[in-house]
Design a protein around this nucleic acid. Structure first.
Lengths: 229, 229
DNA sequence: GAGGTTTTTATCCCGTTCGTCCATTACCTC
DNA sequence: GAGGTAATGGACGAACGGGATAAAAACCTC
């Protein structure tokens, strides 16, 4: 195996000579981060291998330590990236122009689709919970993330109550938890669930049925007067 | 450290002599299984250490291999035990004498409490999903488990529909998924959720509020006529 | 183009960890 | 109590895996 094969990239054509090196700090960093995301999401923190990550990048293991410091810091960087992504998108949601019920349904729709399409995110969150969020606790970036969903929900609920469509007294965070729980579980637990109940939670018809069911459950909860007790 | 200290158990008093050994195959097996449950639930399959398990049993690592064959088989035995436990309890539930709504609320109540009280189970299920249920797939014991919850739910739904209290057309498995999702998420994701939203999902008042909310959501879903679409 | 800094490559190191080997002790049967 | 089987203990091995070291190549600045 020649050096050419090992690196896989030669940017200048310099026949007969050693392949020249091209520095690309940001590219290298991103490359590592992307591969690490896959590795950790797929195998967990303990299961993920630094050597395996290095092997799939176009660079070497040394660069991981150079840019990130170590396995844990790399994992944390991955975590910060995926959390940053979802918050950024959430913050761009604009639901204030919609009718309360429509707004809630739109938010559920978004959450449902996002979670379904970002299995890596779901897996990383699950993994982090297995670790009792011990890594996340060290992250200032995640602690400082601007969470607007709760405010968004609070305003929708308030408008709904004023309009008389929402009668139940539900706290925004609780509502968010309920929506997340539904959407998250379908993805996070699909493997054991499918196996035990002979289902296919990834199937199209199941998906649309579930989406409707979840939205109906939330909406009917909000519309129903508390039973009291 | 003497041999006495190392084993921790001397069943016969034979002063001045080596402590005698007592064979206890079933006890040894159970001992290992219990410690392994804690270890794997706490640290995951990759994170769990065979040596650590052995150290906390009253026996040695050799016995793990003698009785279970290896790390993976031990982990599978743990999985089979906890799944067997919950199914056994579920199968003993008797909800057919209750009014449909009361029965549903009782089932939710049970599920909620069981999940909350069996964090090890929740964690092991999460862990197994991280592994895409690859270990569980190898288990005949789990595949052959008798799942009665779905039948129970089906009968409650049917009775509710006949009585005119339940109007929505919901499939038993979907309903079970929804209930599980709620109850599971609160426990499985509590660490990241608490951190991000500055909550305490383990607090008493949160717990009872959530239990009521979940039950209300399910019940109002079932009682509400489908919106159609 | 010289000097210093940043980025990169190649190789080595040592603690950890799963699993095994072999000898020994308890137990059961006749 | 003799002989065979089941259960147990303790130490050892070999591979793995995270991380470190040293040196070279590219890049930037003046």
């Amino acid at each position: 195996m020649t050096a050419d094969d090992a690196t896989g990239i030669i940017r200048k054509a310099n026949p007969g000579a050693k392949p020249s090196r091209k520095n690309d700090p940001e590219g290298t960093r991103q490359d590592i981060l992307e591969v690490a995301t896959e590795e950790f999401a797929s195998l967990g923190f303990s299961g993920g291998r630094v050597d395996a990550i290095a092997a799939r990048t176009r660079t070497t293991k040394r660069m991981i330590y150079y840019y990130f410091g170590g396995k844990e810091e790399l994992y944390l960087a991955v975590l910060e990236k995926v959390y940053g992504d979802i918050r950024a998108i959430e913050n761009r949601l604009n639901l204030q122009d919609l009718e309360p019920e429509t707004a809630i349904r739109a938010l559920i729709d978004f959450t449902f689709d996002y979670q379904e399409q970002h299995e890596d995110f779901i897996r990383l969150v699950s993994i982090e919970n297995i670790h009792r969020a011990e890594h996340m606790k060290k992250s200032k970036a995640i602690a400082n993330l601007n969470i607007t969903v709760i405010d968004t929900l609070a305003r929708i609920l308030e408008r709904g109550r004023l309009a008389g469509v929402f009668k139940a007294d539900i706290q925004p965070i609780d509502l968010h938890m309920m929506i997340s729980a539904f959407c998250f579980f379908r993805v996070s637990n699909r493997h054991t669930f499918n196996l035990i109940f002979h289902q296919n939670l990834a199937a199209d018809d199941t998906r649309s049925r579930h989406k409707r069911m979840i939205a109906d459950a939330i909406v009917s909860l909000l519309k129903t007067e508390a039973v009291g007790g």
